[in-house]
């Protein structure tokens, strides 16, 4: 690569790099946002929820 060519590629690079790294960061934030949510949906549901729902169902049947 001659001097001029290497200069040209250098002058182009920062923009492309910046936009690529911006995309990477935004994708990463998106992935992490989903993880915050999925970490909770993947937890086992505490028994209390289902027993409360059963209770509510039973008492509504009695009425």
């Amino acid at each position: 690569m001659n001097y001029k060519a290497s200069q040209m590629s250098q002058s182009k690079k920062p923009d492309a790099d910046a936009s690529r790294s911006k995309k990477i960061r935004q994708k990463r934030i998106g992935d992490q946002l989903r993880r915050l949510y999925d970490d909770v949906t993947n937890e086992p549901v505490p028994d209390e929820f289902l027993s409360l729902l059963e209770q509510a169902d039973k008492s509504s049947k009695q009425k």
Binding site: L36, Y37, V40, T41, N42, E43, V45, L50, L53, D57
Partner: peptide, 22 residues
Amino acid sequence: DDQAFKTELAELIPHLRAFARS
């Protein structure tokens, strides 16, 4: 019917928990 509603509601519990957590 109540049974079907209960089943579907129970399936949504993980999502209710996640939304509430946020």
